[in-house]
């Protein structure tokens, strides 16, 4: 029982990071129709910038400033690349995101270096351990879970309750109508990129003490996050949370029955099965209402 709980915590820790990346995918996808494969790079940049700032600022300030910088960076990407390339097909823009992912990694390699680095633990240190319902875990795990939960709750409020959030949703469900009622869809797309980048950066900061930050960490996270987004159903940020946690839990529990070398296989096998049985994901609507045609 304690053993199962231990696997459970291990699963939801990685799962909640996948979930935040998947939310990032969804925010940009629903606002622009683009699948942003540079999503993992936002996580990496968040961690890297925070680590650099933490050398002369207190950690909470460093994290806040890093999130702000990466948010601006995300907005900048939209303004420089995607706004100008609006007339190109969605497929072109997806390829551009893959190119951007490579460029950002190379830049990070030059700005920082090839070394692995990490933020200090928010509470305690590398060896501290807390008992929760009999399972032992790092206090940082609680930080990760708490942050993910707060992000999800705030995002839900933003989308449902605020004018800005509603406008963003309007852009995704019907861009023409949104434009007709006076919503600046261009700015909404920029904001979506910024929001997505900021969330990624925050995730990058809270996981940095656990999984460490490295210029190459992005693509791996992007693939898992994408899997989580597809599993939940593209275009629905809350479904992404379920998708992310599921991918994390499947990975963790699969280790208890099969050799750990195959845990990625387990996660992707379930993803494939899902695509055969419910191509629109767990919570997506069939017939592709939320899927825009190219």
């Amino acid at each position: 029982m304690v053993q199962a709980l231990q696997y459970f915590f291990s699963g939801i820790t990685v799962g909640s990071v996948y979930a935040i990346v998947a939310i990032g995918f969804n925010i940009i996808y629903s606002a622009t129709g683009v699948l942003n494969f540079a999503q993992g790079e936002f996580v990496m940049l968040g961690g890297m910038v925070a680590i650099t700032l933490a050398s002369f600022l207190p950690v909470p300030v460093a994290v806040a400033v890093a999130v702000a910088i990466v948010t601006l960076f995300g907005c900048g990407l939209e303004l420089v690349f995607f706004r100008r390339l609006r007339s190109h097909s969605i497929l072109h823009m997806i390829i551009i995101t893959i190119g951007l992912s490579i460029v950002i990694q190379e830049l990070a390699l030059h700005v920082w270096d090839e070394k692995v680095r990490s933020l200090p633990y928010f509470t305690g240190n590398e060896a501290s351990s807390v008992k929760l319902l009999g399972a032992a875990l790092s206090p940082q795990v609680i930080w990760v879970l708490g942050t993910a939960a707060i992000v999800v709750a705030l995002l839900q409020l933003f989308y449902k309750r605020t004018l800005y959030g509603r406008a963003m949703r309007a852009c995704s469900s019907n861009p023409e109508a949104a434009m007709l009622v006076g919503i600046n869809t261009g700015n909404m797309r920029t904001a979506a990129f910024g929001l997505s980048a900021g969330l990624g950066a925050l995730a990058g900061c809270v996981i940095s003490p656990i999984s460490m930050t490295h210029y190459e960490m992005g693509p791996g996270l992007a693939i898992k996050g994408f899997a989580a987004a597809v599993l939940g159903g593209l275009g629905n940020p809350m479904a992404a949370v379920v998708g992310g946690l599921m991918v994390g839990l499947i990975e963790a529990f699969s280790v208890s029955v099969i050799p750990s070398a195959f845990k990625d296989v387990a996660a992707f096998a379930i993803l494939l099965a899902m695509l055969f049985l419910r191509p629109h994901g767990l919570f997506g609507r069939p017939s592709g209402v939320s899927v825009r045609e190219v």
Partner: peptide
């Protein structure tokens, strides 16, 4: 990046 599952 995380090996708690194997160590569990």
């Amino acid at each position: 990046t995380d090996l708690t599952d194997i160590l569990t």
